[in-house]
Lab assay of single mutants.
Amino acid sequence: LRLEVKLGQGCFGEVWMGTWNGTTRVAIKTLKPGTMSPEAFLQEAQVMKKLRHEKLVQLYAVVSEEPIYIVTEYMSKGSLLDFLKGETGKYLRLPQLVDMAAQIASGMAYVERMNYVHRDLRAANILVGENLVCKVADFGLARLIEDNEYTARQGAKFPIKWTAPEAALYGRFTIKSDVWSFGILLTELTTKGRVPYPGMVNREVLDQVERGYRMPCPPECPESLHDLMCQCWRKEPEERPTFEYLQAFL
């Protein structure tokens, strides 16, 4: 395994491009020591290896001592969030954005069929390849993070704006909380990567959403798509659509 080009840095580690087995181009995620327990990670990795779908980033291998390494397929255009905010983002029109959403829903419909939960679905965790191919990455890892700023769910590192209220408040993460996050991801797509709930801080978002506030229809977004977002944001988790439905609708 060779680490060649550093692609990015996040709160919990770095991402590199490299070569595996001398020939395969891969992405390598390294986790800061202390982010998660190697034992817990190894268990999760076994499950992650079983998830194989064309719209999920394929896991190739893991190094399960500290520092933990995760070796996955390489996606040339990086994260969907950076892609939307970058040069190419300007030229993306609604049909392409909807197609990308459908690809993500397709990957998540598979996660749904496998009775698995992602827990951290957002544009930053979707990767883009050639020809606007989108794949879901980092599934299941969020559960293992041991950082206090994260586990408190009120901490600075927790993605509260993407998280369903029952998950943020009571830790009830299910495929239905993933559906909520998918609704937020749809706003990221239609606004080219704007942060959700602009002008609001995490605490406010939690309070307002509890009181029934939902983001309005983004500019140039059809009402039918906003309606779909609002279905994803129904207060009762069981009233939210399935990913199978979302995939078919898109």
Rank of each mutant, 00 (worst) to 15 (best):
T190L: 06
G212Y: 06
V133G: 13
D99F: 15
W233F: 05
D120V: 01
P222Y: 08
E44F: 03
A101Y: 00
E188T: 02
R172L: 04
L80C: 12
R172A: 06
R122E: 03
T187I: 10
T72N: 03
P159S: 03
C232N: 12
Y91D: 12
L186K: 02
T88I: 11
M17C: 11
A168L: 05
V47A: 06
L132V: 08
I175V: 15
E236R: 11
Q46S: 10
L132I: 09
L185R: 01
G107P: 00
G78I: 03
R214Y: 09
A168R: 02
K85I: 12
A105S: 13
T190A: 11
A124L: 03
H53I: 03
Q46Y: 10
N148L: 05
M215E: 09
T191W: 05
P196R: 01
R211T: 08
P216H: 08
T19V: 13
I28C: 13
P218N: 07
G155S: 05
A101K: 02
R25A: 09
K85F: 12
K235Y: 09
F243L: 13
K176Q: 13
G155Y: 06
D178N: 00
N148S: 09
L185N: 04
F83Q: 07
A164M: 01
E236P: 11
I68N: 07
Q154V: 13
S106E: 10
L56D: 02
Y60W: 10
L59N: 02
R113L: 11
C232R: 03
E238G: 11
H226P: 01
K192V: 07
P241V: 05
K50L: 11
G10E: 03
L42F: 07
A124F: 01
F182H: 03
K55Y: 10
L81T: 14
E112M: 15
F173I: 06
I28Y: 10
L246G: 06
T151N: 09
L225W: 08
K85W: 13
Y74N: 13
P216C: 08
L81S: 15
A27I: 00
F12G: 02
A102D: 12
V128T: 06
F173E: 00
V111F: 09
Q103H: 10
K49S: 06
Y170E: 07
K157M: 12
G18D: 04
R25E: 09
L141Q: 02
A137T: 03
G129R: 13
M108L: 06
R211V: 10
F249A: 07
W20Y: 12
E65Y: 14
F249S: 06
L225G: 06
T187R: 07
K85H: 12
D82E: 10
L59H: 01
G212V: 02
D120H: 04
L51R: 00
V117F: 03
L97S: 05
P222C: 09
P218F: 06
I184F: 03
V201P: 05
L84V: 12
M215Q: 09
T187A: 08
A124C: 07
T187H: 08
R172F: 05
K176N: 14
